[in-house]
Nucleic acid binder design. Structure first.
Length: 513
RNA sequence: GGUCCGUUCGUCUAGGGGUUAGGACUUCAGAUUUUCAUUCUGGCAACAGGGGUUCGAUUCCCCUACGGACUACCA
């Protein structure tokens, strides 16, 4: 009984998709592609109260950016459309009614106050888990306790009601999870979950089973937070008569906070100083901004590679994977069982690796963009050269500008440390000759510049190590950076001359000392 | 509280009845370099605890501890 593999990612549009969600989507995608199956996205918007404008677009854009392709989705359509549960609303009631008719569900008329009262009562009676279940339902207002004609009357009068699942009192429910193996839960620990809400919408529990069945889903990969309700879902498949085509389940370990307490949440981004969302998000109500990996300058390939390794590994020493390689290497069996703490350092490391693998000319685009924003003109050739010099020392694309400002702007301040240690009259003598002769070079490049410097040093009976730091100081104002001769080549003879002259003037007190 | 899930270096993890318990990130030291970074070499660093089973347990079983999730007419 080999069915065509169909997996789905089913987020609800209640806010920005967080990286845990992206990882879930990624694993679904990897499995689908690995097995030649279909990747489906379904929007779970059965809670109208929690709808957040823009969230759906955010989900689409995030997945697109990450390179997770959808074969069927609300935006693309597909053979099982619609792919928004709100648009599928008319489909659910019949299944709920089917369950009522077969005796596996019932109508309940209890008000919110009555439910609250019941819970309070049970709590007072020291019941461990106050819930609407096989025992307590006998004391509530539902079609199990009310006379039949009373129920009909209430229904006919349009009174608000919900449909609840009639969970068996004593039954061992077994569930096979691809990651955890057999999980056993007793039905007495599950309450009579609401299937249809009083607003006519199904709850997640009903909707996801109905849709997964109708959409012929074969594998459900979702977060571990769903594990406790998975037995309930098994029950639903059974009562609906769909047990033989029930999908396989895989519950992913959670993404945890770096300090090891609880799952990674929205607020952690600000707290720890790294993004927890793929894209920047502005809360439509509060206007609060949350940073995103894309805006931070992460490359989608690095982001995906890093995410894939949060809870999964190929079992080899290889760490850098393209999406295609991930697809080939991915297996559910190699997903870990335990929660994974988020490691920002490692995330940065992945981005560095990807950055360094890029050709200089491509990296130059980041620099060019930063320059454009500041109205500084620069040729592609020059930007490419600078990028090549900088690539070993950047983590994020923004570093290209941050670390290379001195290529475009003369220093206004000088490192005090180097000035006091290395700036002296002998060095100044060398630089004075150096800057004057620089313009006379027939061939102007890093090599000839170095040659010139060496010649002058020889004349003064000095060694290169005695002046390099000071020269760097004069040209860049800094104490560290890439090869200085290359910098001087890129900056040009005239500009270098000006900078040295300026430095000699400004640093005169040090030379005198 | 109850139910369920989990626990190998600080972090991500490999491994699996007998191993010097391996790698990566971080960190430290050395080498190279005009500096810093890179690179290279090397170092520190782990099987939560207690019982079993076994000739032998980090690995299998149980208990404890700790961590986490869930416990809504939210997903």
């Amino acid at each position: 009984m080999e069915r065509e593999v169909r997996v789905r990612f089913a987020p609800s549009p209640t806010g920005p998709l967080h990286i845990g969600g992206v990882r879930t989507a990624l694993y679904n995608y990897l499995l689908a592609r690995k097995l030649g199956g279909t990747m489906i996205l379904r929007i779970e918007d059965t809670d109208q109260n929690r709808f957040v404008p823009g969230a759906e677009d955010y989900i689409r854009e995030s997945l697109e950016w990450a390179g997770i392709e959808l074969d069927e989705s609300p935006w693309k359509g597909g053979p099982y459309a619609p792919y928004r549960q709100s648009e599928r609303k008319p489909m659910y009631m019949q299944y709920a009614l089917q369950l009522v008719e077969s005796g596996h569900a019932y109508y309940a008329f209890d008000t919110a106050e009555e439910l609250e009262e019941m819970r309070e009562r049970l709590k007072a009676a020291k019941v461990a888990t106050p819930q609407y279940n096989a025992i307590t339902r006998a004391t509530m207002k539902n079609s199990l306790t009310l006379p039949e004609d009373e129920v009909k009357k209430r229904l006919a009068s349009g009174e608000a009601y919900v449909i609840r699942l009639k969970v068996p009192r004593k039954e061992e429910i077994r569930l096979k999870d691809m990651i955890r193996g057999w999980v056993m839960v007793h039905s007495s620990s599950i309450d009579d979950k609401v299937l249809m809400k009083s607003d006519g919408m199904p709850t997640y529990h009903l909707a996801n089973i109905v849709d997964d069945h109708l959409m012929k889903i074969t594998h459900v990969i979702r977060g571990e937070e769903w594990l406790p309700s998975a037995p309930l879902h098994v029950l639903l498949y059974r009562f609906l008569g769909w047990e033989d085509t029930m999908p396989e389940f895989a519950h992913l370990p959670l993404l945890l906070k770096p300090d090891g307490n609880g799952k990674l949440s929205k607020r952690d981004g600000d707290k720890f100083g790294f993004p927890v969302f793929p894209l920047e998000w502005t809360d439509p109500i509060t206007g609060d901004k949350s940073m995103g990996y894309r805006e931070k300058g992460f490359m989608p390939e690095a982001f995906v590679n890093f995410l894939a390794f949060l809870g999964w590994n190929p079992g080899t020493q290889q760490e850098l994977f393209t999406m295609q390689e991930l697809i080939e290497a991915f297996t559910v069996e190699r997903i870990g069982k335990s929660g994974t703490k988020f490691d920002w350092q490692k995330a940065r490391w992945f981005n560095e690796q990807y950055l360094r693998a890029k050709p200089d000319e491509e990296l130059a685009q980041y620099l060019l963009k930063a320059l454009e924003e500041r109205n500084i003109s620069c040729s592609l050739e020059k930007a490419t050269k600078i990028s090549g010099l900088m690539k070993e020392r950047v983590t994020l694309p923004s570093d290209f500008w941050n670390e290379a400002v001195y290529f475009f702007e003369a220093p206004t301040t000088y490192s005090e440390k180097v000035a006091s240690k290395k700036w002296n009259s002998q060095a100044v003598a060398v630089f004075t000759a150096f800057k004057d002769e620089l313009g006379g070079l027939t061939e102007y490049n890093a090599e000839s510049i170095k040659e010139l410097l060496n010649t002058i040093l020889e004349r003064n009976a000095m060694k290169i190590g005695q002046v390099m730091q000071a020269l760097r100081l004069a040209v860049t104002g800094l104490e560290a950076g890439p090869d200085l001769m290359q910098i001087i080549e890129i900056i040009g003879a005239a500009e270098t001359k000006t900078r040295i002259e300026h430095a000699i003037e400004k640093l005169a007190p040090y030379a005198a000392a």
